[in-house]
Every structure is written in C-alpha cells, then in structure tokens.
C-alpha cells in the first residue's frame, strides 16, 4: 500500500480524491487542508508520496514543498502537484521546481490512482 499525504484546501475535492484513490485499493490517504497542517502532520508521519494543491490560502503548494524538503526525511519523497491554473505550457515550469508530476484540474477520478502510480514508479 502506498502512503499518500494529500494537501488541499477544498473539502469537496479532498473527498473525491480520497474516494477515488482508496477505490483503487492501492493507497492509504491522509489529508490536510493547508500547508501548515501538513508540516505538523509530517512530524510523526512519513508518506511515500505528497499530493499537493498549488493554490491554497496561506502557504502555497510550492512553499509547502520547499518547507517539507528542508526535512532530510522528505528530500527524496516524490511530490505531485495538482493545479487548476496550469496550461500545457506551464507544466514544464512546475516540474522545474521539484514536482515529479503535475496533474491538471479537473482530474479524472477514475485514472487519478494510475496517474500517481505511473509518476512514482
């Protein structure tokens, strides 16, 4: 089972993502609604992959990842961004800041698990 930490401020999207990932049977999903909560959560939780929303009030997904990366435990944990902003041309830039994969919103709930597994394989 893959331990995934999902950071997303929109409660509806959190619920859909959790349901679609758990439906695949391959993921155990923990969720936080902001970057600050994610930093606290990771004090005693080490996931196999981060799934981060880009635009959140307070710390953005990018800032959250930068903070997480300061912890040696998370230096090599794959990070996948989810964004409602990105156009195809902007995805490369996000990969450039340490994203393993960038998934555009709206995402397809039936292929989300496969997309993440492919990215971290």
């Amino acid at each position: 089972m893959i331990k995934l930490l999902h950071v997303e401020d929109d409660a509806d999207i959190r619920e859909i993502a959790k349901m679609s990932l758990e439906l695949s049977g391959d993921f155990v999903v923990e969720q936080c609604d902001c970057g600050e909560q994610a930093l606290e959560k990771t004090l005693d939780y080490i996931p196999d992959v981060f799934l981060l929303d880009m635009m959140m009030p307070g710390m953005t997904g990018r800032q959250t990842l930068e903070k997480l990366r300061e912890n040696p435990n998370f230096a090599n944990v794959p990070a996948i961004f989810m964004t409602a902003r990105a156009q195809p041309n902007e995805l490369e830039e996000l990969r450039g800041i340490g994203a393993t994969e960038v998934i555009s919103k709206p995402f397809d709930p039936m292929s989300l698990a496969d997309q993440i597994k492919a990215a971290i394989a």
Partner: peptide, 17 residues
C-alpha cells in the same frame, strides 16, 4: 481559471465516481 475549475473538479469528479 482557478475559480471556475475548482468547482468543476468537484462536479466532474463526483459524477465520474
């Protein structure tokens, strides 16, 4: 873009599920 896509993510995601 963000404001429109976020609710659409929930709508499409729910219906997809």
């Amino acid at each position: 873009s963000h404001e429109l896509r976020s609710p659409l993510t929930s709508i499409k995601g729910s219906m997809g599920l």
